[in-house]
């Protein structure tokens, strides 16, 4: 039982490898930190692990198998730029409930206010949008979460609260969590284990 990447390699332009020979695994309930140079391929690796793109080399396996097409993806990715991960022409209520209807307690845990649901994405700040992206990813069938620079747009107090809420949920639901960040001190606070992408 784990999300495993085996010997992963990826390029956009032929022979310009972004990364190669990356093997890593995260088990349910575990928190793995990913760090590395900006441009070393952390986000691309996150997209490969979440199944948005296929690796050019190696394979990703989920709890021993792969996942079927057209089904819910148990690996959910929280993007670095929430404003690019939300349809600008949907109201926030629709964005939130597209895949499931979150309970009020989870909205409260991430400090999402009722009044925001009627707003358009442009009427919320980056940090407010990101909280919708987090809740949206916490579908009941989610098994693994990849958080790509998830809280860089949040103030320190909100950041601490959001991490507390997310870590609690991951622990109680036994979700595996991959945390991508440049903030060494944050990674030190939340992760069980670290993986350095590239060695530049």
């Amino acid at each position: 039982m784990a999300l495993v990447g085996n010997n992963l390699g990826f390029y956009y332009q032929k022979d310009r490898w972004i990364f190669k020979n990356i093997s890593l695994a995260v088990a349910p309930g575990e928190v793995l930190g990913l760090s590395g140079y900006s441009g070393c391929g952390k986000t691309t690796l996150a997209r490969v692990l979440a199944g948005y793109v296929s690796s050019r080399e190696g394979r990703v396996s989920l709890d021993g198998g792969t996942w079927g097409k057209g089904k819910f993806r148990p690996v959910q990715l929280i993007y670095q730029h929430p404003e690019k991960a939300i349809d600008p022409k949907w109201r926030m209520g629709e964005v939130l409930t597209e895949a499931y209807k979150p309970e009020p307690d989870i909205l409260e845990a991430f400090e999402i206010r009722e009044e925001w649901l009627k707003r358009w994405p442009i009427e919320l700040s980056g940090g407010e949008l990101q909280r919708f992206c987090i809740v949206r990813a916490l579908h009941p069938q989610t098994k693994y979460i990849i958080a790509d620079e998830m809280t860089t747009m949040l103030d320190a107090i909100t950041q601490a609260k959001i991490w507390h809420s997310l870590l609690n949920i991951c622990q109680s639901r036994k979700l595996g969590l991959i945390v991508v960040s440049h903030e060494k001190s944050l990674l030190g606070r939340v992760c069980d284990r670290m993986y350095e992408v590239g060695h530049g």
């Binding site: 103030d155 320190a156 107090i157 950041q159 601490a160 609260k161 507390h164 903030e183 001190s185 944050l186 030190g188 606070r189």
Partner: peptide, 16 residues
């Protein structure tokens, strides 16, 4: 003060 102490470098967990 809370903003300052909530930094991961400082007392992150205080807000928890």
């Amino acid at each position: 003060q809370r903003l300052w102490s909530a930094l991961p470098q400082n007392d992150f967990d205080g807000e928890f």
